[in-house]
Amino acid sequence: MDKEAARLIGAGIAMIGAIGGGLGIGVLVSGAVQGIARNPEASGDIQTNMILGIAFAEAVAIYCLVVALLILFVI
């Protein structure tokens, strides 16, 4: 296995971590939508907090992406 192939495989493996971010965002939005459906008046607060939570959950996936990009374009 040459170095180039190992790099590409490594980048792909790094992106496995994006599963966590996706699951997290899914759970988060499902909860937020249920909350809005039960109490539509609180939709403003719920949306704000949901976006913040998505940003936190997404950060994990973004770290994976950064690692993958580093492997692809930096190393």
């Binding site: 997404e58 950060a59 973004i62 770290y63 992406l65 950064v66 990009l69």
Partner: peptide, 15 residues
């Protein structure tokens, strides 16, 4: 967290 979140989102976007 701050720096890589922003960089990752936008860099990934451009890519």
């Amino acid at each position: 967290s701050f720096s890589f979140r922003l960089l990752g989102n936008i860099f990934a976007g451009t890519v």
